[in-house]
Amino acid sequence: MKTLALAFVAAFLLCSNAAAAIKINSHQAKNMDDVMSLGVIYINHNFATEQEAEVAINDDADQHGAKYYHSILMREPGSNGNMHVSAEIYR
Results as ranks from 00 to 15, higher is better:
T3P: 05
T3N: 10
L4A: 13
L4K: 05
A5P: 02
L6P: 03
L6F: 13
L6H: 01
L6D: 02
L6C: 06
A7V: 00
A7K: 05
A7M: 05
A7N: 01
F8N: 00
F8T: 07
V9W: 02
A10G: 05
A10S: 07
A10D: 01
F12R: 00
L13V: 11
L13R: 07
C15T: 13
S16P: 04
N17I: 12
N17G: 14
N17Y: 12
A18W: 09
A18Q: 10
A19D: 03
A19M: 12
A20H: 07
A20Y: 04
A21C: 04
A21N: 03
A21D: 01
I22A: 07
I22D: 08
K23L: 08
K23N: 04
K23M: 05
I24C: 03
I24P: 07
N25W: 02
S26F: 09
H27D: 15
Q28D: 15
A29Y: 05
A29M: 13
K30Q: 14
K30T: 05
N31P: 02
M32G: 03
D33R: 06
D33T: 11
D34M: 00
D34I: 00
V35E: 01
V35M: 11
V35K: 01
V35F: 06
M36I: 11
S37E: 04
S37N: 08
S37R: 02
S37G: 06
L38H: 09
V40R: 04
I41P: 01
I41V: 09
I41M: 00
I41A: 03
N44A: 06
N44R: 09
H45G: 03
N46E: 10
N46S: 14
N46K: 10
F47G: 03
F47W: 05
F47K: 09
A48G: 07
T49Y: 02
T49A: 01
T49D: 01
T49Q: 00
E50L: 10
Q51M: 12
V55G: 01
N58R: 13
D59N: 10
D59E: 09
D59W: 06
D60Q: 09
D60G: 04
Q63R: 06
G65T: 02
G65F: 06
A66H: 05
Y68N: 03
Y68L: 09
Y68M: 10
H70E: 14
I72W: 04
L73F: 15
L73S: 06
M74A: 15
R75C: 08
R75T: 15
E76W: 07
E76P: 08
P77V: 12
G78Y: 04
G78K: 09
S79Y: 00
S79W: 00
N80I: 11
G81V: 14
G81A: 12
N82F: 15
M83S: 04
M83Q: 10
M83H: 08
H84S: 07
H84C: 07
H84R: 08
H84T: 15
S86D: 04
S86L: 08
S86I: 13
S86A: 15
A87H: 14
A87D: 07
A87I: 12
E88C: 12
I89N: 03
I89M: 08
Y90G: 13
Y90D: 13
Y90N: 08
Y90M: 10
R91T: 15
R91V: 13
R91M: 15
